[in-house]
Simulated scan of single mutants.
Amino acid sequence: MKIRFREDGPLVIDLPAGSRFVLDGREYVLDRPKLALCRCGRSQNKPFCDGSHKNCGFKAPAGVLELED
Protein backbone atom coordinates (compact mmCIF):
# COMPACT_ATOMS: atom_id res chain seq x y z
CA MET A 1 0.00 0.00 0.00
CA LYS A 2 1.17 3.50 -0.78
CA ILE A 3 0.28 6.65 1.17
CA ARG A 4 0.98 9.91 -0.65
CA PHE A 5 1.37 13.19 1.17
CA ARG A 6 0.23 15.87 -1.27
CA GLU A 7 2.14 19.13 -1.07
CA ASP A 8 0.05 21.55 0.98
CA GLY A 9 -2.80 19.02 0.91
CA PRO A 10 -4.22 15.76 2.21
CA LEU A 11 -2.93 12.24 2.70
CA VAL A 12 -4.07 10.12 -0.24
CA ILE A 13 -4.39 6.34 -0.03
CA ASP A 14 -5.19 4.21 -3.08
CA LEU A 15 -7.64 1.44 -2.21
CA PRO A 16 -10.05 -0.56 -4.34
CA ALA A 17 -13.58 0.87 -4.44
CA GLY A 18 -15.77 -1.09 -2.04
CA SER A 19 -12.94 -1.52 0.48
CA ARG A 20 -14.01 -1.56 4.10
CA PHE A 21 -11.86 0.13 6.71
CA VAL A 22 -12.10 1.30 10.31
CA LEU A 23 -10.96 4.78 11.30
CA ASP A 24 -11.40 6.24 14.78
CA GLY A 25 -13.62 3.28 15.70
CA ARG A 26 -16.06 3.84 12.80
CA GLU A 27 -16.38 1.50 9.84
CA TYR A 28 -16.49 2.99 6.34
CA VAL A 29 -16.98 1.56 2.85
CA LEU A 30 -14.99 3.35 0.18
CA ASP A 31 -17.08 4.47 -2.80
CA ARG A 32 -14.09 5.47 -4.96
CA PRO A 33 -10.54 4.18 -5.52
CA LYS A 34 -8.85 6.92 -3.47
CA LEU A 35 -9.17 7.97 0.14
CA ALA A 36 -8.13 11.55 1.00
CA LEU A 37 -7.57 12.33 4.68
CA CYS A 38 -7.36 15.87 6.07
CA ARG A 39 -3.95 17.13 7.22
CA CYS A 40 -4.81 20.80 7.72
CA GLY A 41 -7.38 20.30 10.50
CA ARG A 42 -9.96 22.59 8.84
CA SER A 43 -12.14 20.04 7.03
CA GLN A 44 -15.83 20.11 7.89
CA ASN A 45 -15.92 16.41 6.99
CA LYS A 46 -13.10 15.11 9.24
CA PRO A 47 -11.27 12.82 8.98
CA PHE A 48 -11.80 13.23 5.24
CA CYS A 49 -10.47 16.09 3.14
CA ASP A 50 -13.01 18.59 1.83
CA GLY A 51 -10.52 20.94 0.14
CA SER A 52 -10.33 23.41 3.04
CA HIS A 53 -6.52 23.36 2.85
CA LYS A 54 -6.76 25.47 -0.31
CA ASN A 55 -8.18 28.46 1.58
CA CYS A 56 -6.53 28.30 5.00
CA GLY A 57 -2.86 28.73 4.07
CA PHE A 58 -1.90 25.17 5.02
CA LYS A 59 1.70 24.32 4.11
CA ALA A 60 3.25 20.87 4.26
CA PRO A 61 5.78 18.97 2.15
CA ALA A 62 4.95 16.22 -0.32
CA GLY A 63 6.10 12.66 0.25
CA VAL A 64 5.34 8.99 -0.14
CA LEU A 65 5.20 6.18 2.39
CA GLU A 66 5.20 2.66 0.98
CA LEU A 67 4.00 -0.15 3.23
CA GLU A 68 4.80 -3.76 2.52
CA ASP A 69 2.22 -6.53 2.92
Rank of each mutant, 00 (worst) to 15 (best):
D50E: 08
C49E: 10
P16W: 09
P47C: 00
A36F: 06
C38D: 03
S52R: 06
C40S: 14
H53G: 06
D8T: 11
V12H: 00
L37S: 08
A17S: 11
L37C: 06
P16L: 05
L23V: 04
F48Q: 03
F48A: 05
G25D: 11
E7W: 03
S19M: 07
H53D: 07
E7Q: 14
V29H: 06
G51S: 12
V22P: 02
R39F: 01
F48E: 02
P47F: 00
N45F: 08
P10C: 00
R32W: 01
R42Y: 13
L37Y: 07
P10K: 10
P16H: 07
L15G: 00
S52N: 06
R20K: 02
R42C: 10
C40F: 12
D8F: 01
D24G: 09
C49M: 11
D8W: 05
Q44K: 15
V22I: 03
L35H: 08
G41Q: 09
I13M: 01
F48G: 04
P10Q: 11
F48P: 03
R26A: 09
L23E: 00
R26T: 09
I13F: 02
G9I: 08
P10L: 01
S43A: 11
C49D: 03
D50I: 14
E7T: 13
H53C: 08
D31P: 05
S43E: 02
Q44Y: 08
K34N: 10
F21W: 05
P10G: 04
V29M: 05
L37E: 07
P47V: 05
L23A: 06
C49Y: 12
D8V: 06
N45T: 13
L35Q: 10
D8S: 11
L11H: 01
G41S: 04
Y28L: 14
C40Y: 12
R42N: 15
G18I: 01
G18R: 07
V29E: 15
A36H: 12
G9R: 07
E7I: 07
G41R: 12
V12R: 07
C40V: 14
R32E: 09
R20V: 08
S52I: 08
S52F: 04
C38T: 08
Q44N: 13
L15K: 15
P16F: 04
L11T: 08
R20L: 00
V22E: 02
K46R: 13
L35P: 00
P10A: 09
R42A: 15
H53T: 13
R32F: 06
G41A: 12
G51H: 12
D24Y: 04
S43H: 12
F21M: 06
D8N: 15
D8P: 00
P33E: 14
I13W: 02
D50Q: 08
G9Y: 09
E27W: 09
R32Q: 11
A17M: 11
G18N: 00
